Amino acid sequence: MDKALYVAMTGASATLKAQASVSHNLANASTVGFQATLSGTVAAPVDGAGHASRVAASHQTLGVSARAGAVHNTSNALDVALDPDRWLAVQAPGGGVAYTRAGNLQLTPNGLLTTASGRPVLDQGGAPLAIPPHQSLSIGGDGTISIVPQGQPANTIAEAGRLQVAAANTAELVRGEDGLMYAAPDAAPLAPAAGKVLTSGALEGSNVDATSMLVSMIQLSRQFEMQVRILQKGDENARAANTLLSSR
């Protein structure tokens, strides 16, 4: 009986963690460029001295979904939708390089190009991109930013910089606690992508399938209820056994 209780207890704990992962995905179903977290429950033999007779249920993050999100046109010059396996380089909170597919860019009052969450966008040299005063701006398919300088004729076009866009499969990256993607600790720096890397005036939405996430939430809820019932039945059986022993 103690084995059943142990498995049910660890299973219930893993189910709660899986429910939190599903809830996080659902909360980001409308977040630009968000990629769903993949998770599951695995068997985890308990290590230690003694006979190896205990196997726990453990929640495990399996990675990030590489499925592309829906792309929709916005006609906003600062919006970009990254091509498959292309990542926009931004400055990480710790000062390093992080990557994102969220292309809803913004300009600060002092001309610094940032993501919607405020992370500075990096240029080809790894420095934060600053855009000088301009009348109009456009971003080419290769990430080149062209502007018409303030006070200049419309046919005067100058290059203001180029977005640093890296090429990598989703499986090669690791999601940090801040939601940004990072190169694996033992991996080489990501190589820059050549040629067309993005579509300007468009945004890639979240790749979360809200319907399947809702179904998963219901399934996990019922699974948790079943595991709690096993714990309750185990307690009832233990009470009944104690009653029989005390009556002898």
Rank of each mutant, 00 (worst) to 15 (best):
G69I: 02
T100S: 01
Y6P: 06
K196P: 00
Q232I: 01
N169S: 11
G205L: 11
N110F: 14
A52T: 05
T100G: 05
G63F: 00
L122A: 10
S65G: 02
K3T: 15
A116S: 15
P149Q: 04
Y99E: 04
Q35N: 15
P84L: 08
S13C: 01
S136D: 13
L112W: 12
G234D: 00
I139P: 08
Q227A: 09
T114I: 11
A29Q: 15
P185S: 12
V165E: 12
D186K: 14
P153W: 10
G125V: 01
Q223M: 13
V121M: 03
D209T: 06
G179E: 03
P189V: 11
G95R: 00
L190P: 11
D2I: 14
A29I: 09
D186S: 15
P132T: 03
A166S: 13
Q124H: 12
K196W: 07
T15M: 08
G234K: 01
L163A: 09
L203P: 04
G69L: 05
L190K: 01
L113D: 04
A29Y: 13
P132W: 09
V197K: 07
L190I: 12
A240E: 13
A92C: 07
S21V: 09
A184D: 10
L244Q: 12
T144Y: 06
L5S: 09
D186T: 15
L5A: 09
A27T: 04
A102S: 10
A68V: 01
E159P: 07
S200H: 10
A29W: 13
G48D: 06
H72V: 14
A166I: 02
A43M: 10
I230A: 14
K233I: 10
A166P: 10
I145M: 05
S30F: 11
I131R: 03
P93L: 08
S23R: 08
G161Q: 03
S21W: 04
D209W: 00
H72T: 15
N155L: 05
G195M: 06
I230D: 12
V7H: 07
Q124L: 12
K3S: 14
Q164C: 07
P109G: 10
I147S: 02
L113G: 05
V46D: 09
N237M: 15
P109F: 10
Y99D: 06
A116E: 13
G96E: 02
L107K: 09
A43P: 08
L88S: 01
Q232R: 06
A89N: 08
G111L: 08
W87M: 00
L107F: 07
D178M: 00
T114G: 04
A167R: 06
L245V: 14
S65A: 07
G234R: 00
Q135W: 09
S138D: 12
A127I: 10
T74K: 08
T114Q: 14
L245W: 13
G95H: 00
D47P: 13
Q91S: 02
G33V: 02
L26N: 04
P128R: 12
G176P: 04
A127H: 15
T41C: 02
L82D: 03
R101F: 03
L38D: 04
T170F: 04
A188V: 11
V7L: 12
A154Q: 11
Q35C: 09
L5G: 05
T199I: 08
D83Y: 13
T144L: 07
P45G: 07
V80G: 10
D85N: 13
I157F: 11
P84Y: 11
